[in-house]
Structures are given as C-alpha cells and as structure tokens.
C-alpha cells in the first residue's frame, strides 16, 4: 500500500523535472557538421563541378546505390553526365565521402527525406548538386593535379615546375 503512494509521489515529482523530449519539428536538435545525412555534390571555389566522375564513391558503396557515367567537357574537365543515388538503398555509411578524392561528395546534417513513394527517393544529379563548396571551402582538385585543363596549363599545378624543354641541350 505504502509503495503505491511512494510510486505516485515519485511520478508527481517528475512533473517538475527538465523535459527530455524534444518537440520536433518545432524544436530542432543540434547536428554536428560531420553528421551523416543526405548526400550532396559540391562545387569548387571557382564554381566548377567538383566531381570528376572517378567512380570511387560507387566502388566504395557497400549497397551499390550510386551510379554515374563519365563525360568530358571541351575544357578537358571530366564530369558525370548523370549521377544517381538511390536513397531507398543508402545506409548513410559515409564511405563515399571517404573515398572521394576531390571532396565533391559530402554527407550533410539533413535527415528529413521521408517520402510516400520509394521512387521519389531516387535522386538525380540536379537534386544532388549544390552551388557551394560544402565543408571544404578551399580545395580545388585541378589546382593540385597535374592534368592540364583550360585555364591551367602544364606546370601550373601546386608543386610543379615549368614543362621540360625536351630539345634543350643544357646538362
């Protein structure tokens, strides 16, 4: 009998404690920048597409939910002619981001992706590509890599010396 009152008292006291429940969506939880949510494709600081269609994200994906096809612009930059992520299969493991050599593919702190139809979870490139640099504001792959593209000649990448004159006679 006593225990009954004791329990009721306990419950009553709880009513004055700080609430644990977050009343989402009015109130939003803090999500760290490293949170692994909806995947995006970013652009480099010059506004060009960062993705060079190297297929490494697709290879790293354990559920094989990324498909893309490489193409090349006249400037010599490689890009994906299509880029598709099937979010109904994605497990948000972040391996694609780890594999990406150009910081193009990034996971964001957004998980609000519920849909009524599974088909709506298939994101194409226009759904994925954002206009900013995402988490890595400075990196530009082509400024580091030795490949020449329009506007960046041989020898102009980071750490490079000017092209060798193969007809030179100097020792």
């Amino acid at each position: 009998m006593l225990s009954l009152f004791k329990t009721a008292w306990g419950v009553f006291l709880r009513a004055f404690e700080k609430r644990v429940t977050v009343s989402y969506p009015e109130e939003r939880p803090y999500l760290a920048p490293r949170f692994r949510g909806r995947i995006i494709l970013s652009r480099d600081p010059d506004g060009g597409e960062r993705c060079v269609a190297c297929y490494l994200c697709a290879a790293a994906c354990p559920v094989d939910c990324i498909a893309l096809d490489a193409a090349e612009t006249e400037d010599g930059r490689r890009y994906p002619s299509f880029f598709r992520i099937n979010f109904s299969r994605c497990i948000f493991c972040g391996y694609c981001e780890e594999a990406c050599p150009t910081y193009a593919i990034q996971l964001t702190p957004d998980f609000e992706m519920s849909e009524y139809a599974r088909q709506s979870l298939v994101y194409e490139k226009e759904d994925l590509l954002i206009s900013g640099t995402g988490k890595y504001p400075d990196y530009n792959f082509y400024r580091v890599a030795g490949l020449a593209i329009k506007g960046k000649d041989k020898g102009e990448a980071e750490n490079e010396t000017p092209p060798v004159d193969i007809r030179g006679l100097m020792p």
Binding site: Y55, A58, D64, C65, I66, A67, N86, E124
Partner: peptide, 10 residues
C-alpha cells in the same frame, strides 16, 4: 562492380 541498385533506378 558498382551501382547495382542504382543503374535501373532512374
């Protein structure tokens, strides 16, 4: 081989 669950998803 990659993209098995995304190739036809379009």
């Amino acid at each position: 081989f990659s993209g098995r669950t995304a190739i036809h998803a379009g």
